[in-house]
Amino acid sequence: MSADTRRPRLFTANEYHRMAEVGILHPAERVEFINGRIFSMSPKGPVHTEIVNNLESCFQGLFEGRARLRREQPVELGELGQPEPDMAVLRLSPRRYVTNHPKPENIRFVVEVADTTLTYDLTIKNETHSRSGIKEYWVVDINNRRVFVFTRPGPSRYRSERICTEDESVSPAAFADAIVPVRVLLDLTES
């Protein structure tokens, strides 16, 4: 009996874009391209949306004039794909990324907010961001009220992981003076 040698057919970034151009992928369809595969994206519930709003509010004050925020928009990882992180904190660019999506060298760090996607964000996305050379990756774990901070990208995963509870604060490596209280990111009360 011979071993099964079938492998999944992976797509290139050009093929992914072509599928959108010719209508195979509908503009309203929520998908992202990672590691040659097209993944359906989970619907964004109200809690997820509010946590992303918290990120944006917090980061606007901390990084104004120092970085550009990109919310739920693609970043270009070459053939590794075009994920759409909940928040990407980018280098300021005079061109404002008009001709290309930001590439790893333009990205200070990315953040994913996980309520139903924690395993996916800690595995597939972790590997993809690390392999592409993104220097820092955060996962806001809504259900367990903590933030994973990954640094030191390696060939398959980040080599450093820190888990911050809601009683702690975190600072991105690119902005060591920017102190982000985890409790503020996870706050769902009306202000």
Rank of each mutant, 00 (worst) to 15 (best):
M1Q: 14
D4R: 14
R9F: 15
L10S: 11
F11E: 07
F11S: 12
T12L: 08
A13C: 09
N14P: 05
H17G: 13
R18M: 11
M19H: 03
A20R: 09
E21K: 00
E21F: 02
G23M: 09
H26L: 10
P27L: 05
F33Q: 03
R37E: 15
F39K: 03
F39G: 03
S40K: 12
M41W: 03
P43Y: 04
G45A: 11
P46S: 15
P46W: 12
H48A: 06
T49Q: 15
T49K: 12
E50M: 14
V52Y: 01
F59H: 02
F59K: 07
Q60H: 05
G61Y: 11
G61E: 09
R71C: 07
R71I: 15
E72Y: 02
Q73G: 10
P74L: 09
E76Q: 02
E79G: 03
G81Q: 00
G81T: 00
G81H: 02
P83D: 00
P83L: 03
P83M: 01
P85W: 02
M87F: 06
M87R: 07
V89S: 04
V89W: 09
L92T: 10
P94D: 15
R95T: 15
R95M: 13
T99H: 12
N100H: 13
P104Y: 02
P104D: 02
R108E: 14
F109W: 09
V110E: 07
V110F: 04
V111A: 06
V111L: 00
E112Q: 10
V113E: 04
V113A: 02
A114L: 07
A114P: 00
T116M: 00
T117G: 05
T117S: 09
T119V: 13
Y120S: 06
L122Y: 07
L122I: 05
T123R: 10
I124V: 15
N126R: 15
E127N: 08
R131H: 04
S132G: 04
G133C: 10
I134L: 04
E136R: 02
V139N: 04
V140C: 00
I142K: 06
F150Q: 09
T151S: 13
P153T: 05
G154A: 11
G154D: 08
P155V: 10
R157E: 14
R157W: 13
Y158D: 04
S160W: 10
R162D: 09
I163A: 03
T165G: 14
T165M: 12
E166P: 01
E166Q: 11
V170I: 12
V170P: 00
S171D: 05
A176Y: 08
A178T: 09
I179S: 11
P181L: 08
V182I: 12
V182C: 05
D187R: 07
E190K: 14
